[in-house]
């Protein structure tokens, strides 16, 4: 039961990732791509946490935490850059 729900959740998250990827490819603006990237990151964090459950390794949670930290900084930096550069 729990096993099945994990795989179902992973499948749904994968579809969400593909949809975000579609927006990333289509753009049209850089801003659209940054938003898509942000969404892909959040979905990715869920993915990492799910992997942690399946593999039963708590250390992956730290990976998810650091990933969240880095992507937050990344989005802020890119947004500030676009604000001045465009």
């Amino acid at each position: 039961m729990a096993e099945a729900s994990i795989y179902l959740a992973a499948l749904l998250a994968a579809v969400a990732f593909v949809l975000a990827m579609a927006r990333f490819v289509r753009g049209p603006l850089t801003f659209d791509r940054v938003v898509a990237f942000d969404v892909m990151t959040i979905v990715g964090i869920t993915g990492i946490v799910l992997v942690a459950v399946v593999e039963d390794r708590a250390i992956y949670l730290d990976v998810a935490l650091i990933y969240a930290l880095m992507s937050f900084l990344g989005v802020i930096v890119v947004a500030r850059h676009l604000e001045r550069g465009l």
Partner: peptide, 13 residues
């Protein structure tokens, strides 16, 4: 888990 992943899907949509 499934409810959360459904929201992810709706977000992507």
């Amino acid at each position: 888990l499934v409810a959360g992943a459904s929201f992810l899907l709706l977000g992507g949509l």
